[in-house]
């Protein structure tokens, strides 16, 4: 079992994702598709810049599609160059309160809290 299984099971488990049709024809993304991707990534993209992004992204995707020429069914994916297990840390408190320093670089704080526009739940 490895990342391979990760992906297969992911596909089986995923029943909440995009409908397949959302990004049809990957080679050539439409302005609407770019808008959707930008939304997912929370990036404001000016309407006027959409065609250029669409063209750039389509070029990049066509370029990376070259990978599909390679038959890789039996290849085990490699997620990380270091093929070793992760090192663990002992359970000990090593950090002190540094709120003042951390919040000195924050855009908006009050009473020790980071502020954002009201979140509606």
């Amino acid at each position: 079992m490895d990342v391979f299984t990760f992906a297969i099971e992911r596909r089986l488990a995923d029943n909440s994702g995009f409908p397949e049709s959302r990004f049809e024809e990957a080679m050539s993304l439409s302005n609407e598709q770019v808008t959707e991707i930008a939304h997912l990534a929370r990036l404001q993209v000016d309407q006027a810049d959409l065609p250029e992004y669409a063209r750039n992204l389509s070029d990049i995707l066509s370029f990376v599609d070259a990978m599909n020429a390679m038959e890789t069914d039996s290849v085990e994916p490699l997620a990380h160059p270091l093929e070793m297990p992760q090192r663990l840390r002992e359970d000990a408190v090593t950090e002190e309160n540094q709120r003042e320093q951390f919040q000195a670089v924050a855009p908006q704080v009050e009473a020790g809290l980071y502020l954002v526009p009201r979140v509606i739940e």
Binding site: V3, F23, V64, M67, M70, T72
Partner: peptide, 19 residues
């Protein structure tokens, strides 16, 4: 990384990485 494209792009690239 988005659903429906993960295998074609990310996973494929990881396999290329192995090769």
């Amino acid at each position: 990384l988005s659903a429906g494209y993960f295998d074609a792009y990310y996973l494929k690239a990881q396999k290329m990485r192995r090769l």
